[in-house]
Amino acid sequence: MNLQLKIWRQKNAESKGYFETYKVEATEHMSFLEMLDVLNEQLIQEKKEPVVFEHDCREGICGACSMVINGQPHGPMAATTTCQLHMRHFKNGQTITIEPFRAKAFPILKDLSVDRSSFDSIIQSGGYISVNTGQAPDGNSIPIEKDLAGKAFDAATCIGCGACVAACPNGSAMLFTSAKVSHLGLLPQGEVEHKRRVKNMVEQMDKEGFGMCSNTKACEAECPKEISVENIARLNRNYMNSILTGE
C-alpha cells in the first residue's frame, strides 16, 4: 500500500515545528511503528535525519510510544497503543497525519517525542505504599476479595503513556492520577495513607501544569488500557473527603 505521511518535525524544544510530507510503501501486516521504521530507513539512505519517536516494548505495555495519528492519540483503534496498531486498518492511498502528544505539561523534545517526566513527579508525591523492604507480613495474612483485587488490578494496568492528557482539551492528568489512587486506595495495604496520598498527588498534578478536569471523558475514549472514568469520580470523592476531614 502507498501512503502519504504528514509528520510533525521539530528540531528541539526551542525551535518551531512544521509538517513535512513523505511517501512510503507499506504492507498491511506491518505495525504502525514498523511502517515508520521503513520511512526512517529510507530517510537514512537519503542521508536525511530520521523521524524521532519513542518506543521500546512494541507490545503495548511500556507506555513509551506516543503519537497523535489523524487527530487521535494512539490512532483510530480503541484500546490499542500505537505500537500495536497495524496497517491493515489503513487504506491504500491514504494520507496520515502524525503529531506529538500536545499538552502544557508534556513539552516537545524533538519531532514526535515529548517529556513526560511530570508523571514521575506525580508518583513521587505519593503514588506508593510506605513499606520498607523486609517489613512485610506473610502474603496471605490479609485475604482480599477477588473482585476487589480485580478492580485494583484494572486501575493498575495504566501504562503511563499520557494519551489521556493528550486527548483532554484541558490537558488534565486526572485519569492517570485517579488510576493510581484507585489501585492503591482500594487495597487494604494502601488504605492507611490514602487521604494523604490523595491530597499530595492532586496538588502535585496542579504544580506540574496539568489542567482541570471538566468531565469530557475524552481521556477514557483514548486510553489504550481502557482505564475507566469511574476512577476520576472516586478520586473526586476522596479528595473532597480528605479536605473536609482536614488532612
Binding site: 513499606v131 523492604t133 517489613q135 512485610a136 489501585h183
Partner: peptide, 8 residues
C-alpha cells in the same frame, strides 16, 4: 514484599 507494596 510485593503484596505489601500493593501488587495486585
Amino acid at each position: 514484599q510485593c503484596v505489601a507494596q500493593g501488587v495486585p
